[in-house]
Design a protein around this nucleic acid. Sequence first.
DNA 1: ATGAATAATGCAAGCGCTTACATTGCTGGC
DNA 2: GCCAGCAATGTAAGCGCTTGCATTATTCAT
Lengths: 341, 341
Amino acid sequence: MSKLRSAPTLDDVARQAGVSTATVSRCLNAPDRVVEATRQRVMQAVEALGYTPNFAARVMAAKRTFTIGAIIPTMENAIFARGLQAFQEELHKRGYTLLVSSSAYRPEVEEEQIRTLVARGADGLLLIGHDRNPQIHDYLERQKVPAMVAWSYIPNARAPSIGFDNRQAMQALADRVIGLNHTRIAMISGVSEGNDRARLRIEGARDALRKRGLNPDSLSIIETSYEVENGAEAFARLISQSPHPTAILCGNDVLAAGALRQAQSMGLNVPEDVSITGFDDIELARIVSPALTTVHVPHREMGSKAALELVEMVENSTPGSTIRLQTEIVERQSLGPANNS
Amino acid sequence: MSKLRSAPTLDDVARQAGVSTATVSRCLNAPDRVVEATRQRVMQAVEALGYTPNFAARVMAAKRTFTIGAIIPTMENAIFARGLQAFQEELHKRGYTLLVSSSAYRPEVEEEQIRTLVARGADGLLLIGHDRNPQIHDYLERQKVPAMVAWSYIPNARAPSIGFDNRQAMQALADRVIGLNHTRIAMISGVSEGNDRARLRIEGARDALRKRGLNPDSLSIIETSYEVENGAEAFARLISQSPHPTAILCGNDVLAAGALRQAQSMGLNVPEDVSITGFDDIELARIVSPALTTVHVPHREMGSKAALELVEMVENSTPGSTIRLQTEIVERQSLGPANNS
DNA sequence: ATGAATAATGCAAGCGCTTACATTGCTGGC
DNA sequence: GCCAGCAATGTAAGCGCTTGCATTATTCAT
């Protein structure tokens, strides 16, 4: 309460500098529309008073926030960190501020966060993946807040997206695995419901089996949430099958790290006894040993291009274009030829 | 522009429901001050129009945002993730929204973010560590925005803090190391300038040497930023000394993971040839092998208590108290007895 | 039934800023 | 020296919401 009584306002600055509030406002937002001498006087007053413009007031008057919101499924691991970092750097260059929140992979939380961000006046939104209640896009449209989807490339989806073809990427990896004579293959996937990336990666793996003449239904899949513990546990379950799989495809590097740890604690050698692959190529993939063979995703490129595209959508009311990025398989040590004994 | 023309306002809802804007406002903010029948009518109108309150307007009128800001040094690794998660969960329970931004360990960026968050009306701020330009606290005081420091416990500092005694914690760990007959000890620290945690951990290590009758200056220290690569590189440099250190204390688990990787790639066995310790006990510590002996920090507890404390400060204008949390050493496999050959 | 007390609702004044439009002050061509 | 024309500045109307106070409806003891 006394908070606002004490913080100096535009009015205070104007009075102190002996000009009108309009002039002060212009000094701050369009310095060239004000003559040098005046500006100096104003700036002095600003300094002297330690004035900081009130954001809410500015937003109300100008109807622009120069804020972009992003809602990511999790901050607990590094999956989205690097891309988001690039996203925010690019945004910053363009004069925008990024607000991030995480939904913990819960659709209803995501929805709430979207509404919160919109109510806060986000000029645009970055969302991860396409799976969500279509009503949300109606809402966004009504509110005229453009949204861009990242980490998933799906042409002609409801929202423009930038990402890679999850299905094709996993297919390529699985194909490589099969090429090493693996036939008993299993998969530890993220929860596919509400997660198009997870679902498409599963499909990709099946595609590869099919293409190579194996039965796609022979792929045993455990779906679990993306945590190291869960990867470990799933691994233990899969490996107890007999005959056990010789290769385990993991939905991401975190799950793979868990699987790897479990393998080691069970005294299994990777890749001699069992191969394990990851996905994403986050730092973790190079930290564990053996280092993970995984799919490299161009996180930074995705982040910065998403920013460019989204700013474009915001500033020129364009519909936004859908961009496909390439992934590539990074061979390290966790994948080897099958030991079909 | 048309954005606001199209989005329904309180006025629209009021008209549609045949009541005044005040009533609508009350329905939303103090439902019990309005009679059931009216509220239903209003809520129907809200639904029908798909009304979302305008945050900026609300803030202007109410002078409260129910928003807390947090500025952390980095989102690129998991150091702050778990604590922040708990912080935000607790905040959410109390009806607050968390805004997070990262300063990339750069003081000037942190300062800018603080101003941004304050301008956006954050009711309170969570900051990491005590090292910063004291002017910032003057500013915060003038703006009447309470701030709480986490990850560092320093009584009688400018701001109340919740954390652990970094110095004592590292001292205890180093003491344990020395107890295993290590005498040639080195340290890979984070950059200590502007980072009280890093500095105090170094001091703690020296304390331990001193206490055990070793020369604290014999501790060779490499300061580097908290990235895996840097840990690896620093390790390589330290180990090339002759005689090389038998134990390397790392400023955090990330550096330790890098050191470990480097050791392995140089064909050294940990802990037989060289011991490595971490700090923080993030998930990574259990993923690498050998798993890291490290200092466990009660991240979640720190986060949720910080939230409680900060909300208290915001709502009752209390000065906030400084809280000390305990850490404990987690023994895993990366630390062993010295091989003083 | 009746009036006092109380609950429900309405009225209207801002919150701090931007910006369209109005006003004032200068410039220079004649 | 005068005035058209433009640059610099000022005036004031909102932006959408909350809330203190005023007004009206309801309740209940008598």
